Structure formats: C-alpha cells, structure tokens
Amino acid sequence: MRRRAALTAALAFASAARAQAPQRLRIGFAVGYAPFSEIGTDGQLKGFEIDVADALCRHMGMQVTPVILDFDGLIPALQSRKIDAILASMSITPQRQQLIAFSSPYYFSPVRMVMRSNAGLTVSAQGLKGRRIGVERGTIHERFLAEQFKGSQVLRYATQDQVFLDLKAGRLDATLVDAVIAQFGFLNHAEGRGFGFHGPDFGRDERHYGKGIGVGLRKEDAPTLGKRVDDALAALRRNGTLKALNDRYFSFDLVSQR
C-alpha cells in the first residue's frame, strides 16, 4: 500500500512539475547579421532580436528554443511546423501576409544601396543598368530589385555575409540591404572601408516594404499565440523594455512607431 501511495505521489509530483515548466517556443532566426542575431565567440546566440525574443517569452511565461535557418527557409519551416515563430528582420508585406500572419511591428528599418564610394554610379534603374547587384535570396529586396531594376544583373545569395564578400572582392557593383545590417555587418569594419550608402531610403516604399518588421506566425495561430505576442510587445513598449534593448545596440531609434 505504501509503495502504491509513494508511486502515486511521485507521478503527481512529475505531472505538477511538467505543468509548471515553461512552454517552449521554437523561434526561427537567420543568424550572421550583427547586431540583430549572430553567434558569438563563445558559441552563444546574441543580438537585438535574440534579446527581444527572450523578453517576449519571459513576459509570456515561455522559454525560447532557437532554430537557426537560412532566411529563405524560414517561412517553409513555419508552415511545416518545424518552428512556431520567426524573428529575423522580416518585413510585413502583402505578399508575405498571403502566406503567414504577423505581429505588430517591433522595429522599422531603412533600406539602402551599398557601393564603393568612388564608383561614380547613380542609384536608379538607368544608372545601374547592366550592373551586378547582390541580394540575399528570399528577402523583399530580391523582389524589389526584380521589379524596379530589371536592367541590372541581380545575383542571389544564401546569406548577406556572402554578398558582402563578393562586393569587397569586386564581383559585385552594389548590394541592396537593410541599412542597419550594412552598417554593423560591413561598413563599420575594415573590409567595408571605401564603401558607403548611396541613393534613397527604399524602405519608405510601403507598397514593397510594408509596415515594419514583425514576428512571423502561422495564420491559424494568430488568434491565440499571435494575440499573446502582440500583448507582450505592447507591454514591452509601455514599460520601456523595447526602447532599452534598442539603446543597447543602436545609437538611433528603430522601435518608435511611425
């Protein structure tokens, strides 16, 4: 009798422990884009979006399980339930909203062309006609170039780091990229010497670039997990957490509502 009671108590304790353990949220990241998400020298993930994910999950009583993927594999992984959410500087656009749902924006980013400062090129469809422009595959930049720079040679890469390598080596004339990623991942480093931003901020084109950067979610999860994420983001704005994370990484404001 005592053994049965002890077993019942042990099972009840294990069940209670499972109930109290935080639910894991599998979040897809596309790493290699300082200061948003990268792997540090200690092998640990770090960056603005990593910290935003941690803050969101803490507020929701959940625990982050990071899943590292190429950018163009994020939406398929979400749709096939390999991940539960995306935090990877993904713009909220009408095209993507046909496939997945989004939270409210957690930051806004300018989009610029990066070229050699002495290239003498004009950033326009005519000025870059026949020129080689590198872009990360699966991004809205790829679609924008295909529509707006039809006379250019658009070369597609798995990661933006590969684009920067070919730009530095002279195999590209330009790249279209989020300005923050270009600043911190290339221009602030020795390999970015002699390069700079050119042309307008294409991120202001809401028709192509949407309404900011949001957390990607499955459509069927929008009323449940999506609402929890939106409520958590609103709370992080109100209590100053989102602005504090912004100020930890950036000298300019990316998180205030437009």
Score class of each variant (00 low, 15 high):
A34M: 12
A125D: 03
R248Y: 02
K227C: 00
G196N: 07
L254P: 04
G134N: 09
P200W: 04
M62S: 03
F48D: 01
S152R: 06
A232D: 14
A14H: 07
E220P: 00
D42P: 05
E49T: 03
D201G: 03
F252N: 02
A179H: 01
D178L: 07
M115G: 02
Y249F: 11
S91G: 03
G192L: 09
Y33A: 12
Y157D: 08
R116L: 04
L69P: 01
Q97C: 12
F164C: 13
K82P: 01
M113V: 05
F250R: 08
A88P: 00
D253W: 05
G210I: 00
F29C: 13
L225A: 10
D70E: 14
R3K: 13
S91N: 06
P35C: 13
L69R: 09
S104N: 11
P110G: 02
D84H: 05
P66R: 10
L69G: 07
P94K: 15
L128C: 04
E191A: 14
G199I: 09
R143T: 11
T65F: 07
D42G: 12
R18E: 10
Q162H: 15
K46Q: 14
R238S: 11
L25K: 12
A77D: 13
D231K: 15
A174C: 04
Q97L: 13
D72F: 10
C57Q: 02
R204F: 11
A6S: 14
A182W: 06
G226Y: 06
E147S: 09
F71V: 08
H141V: 01
L217P: 04
L254I: 03
L165W: 08
F29I: 13
E206Q: 14
L167Y: 06
A158R: 11
M62H: 08
R96G: 12
I181E: 02
Q148C: 03
G43Q: 11
K129A: 14
V67F: 05
Y106H: 09
G47P: 07
A30L: 11
G226P: 08
I83G: 05
F13D: 09
A119G: 00
P22V: 11
S91V: 02
S152Y: 08
Y107P: 00
L245A: 08
R137H: 08
L245G: 02
V31A: 14
M1Q: 15
A34H: 12
L56E: 07
F144C: 03
L176D: 01
R258P: 06
R207A: 15
I75D: 00
L145K: 06
D54V: 01
V255G: 00
L69Q: 10
T224D: 09
V67H: 04
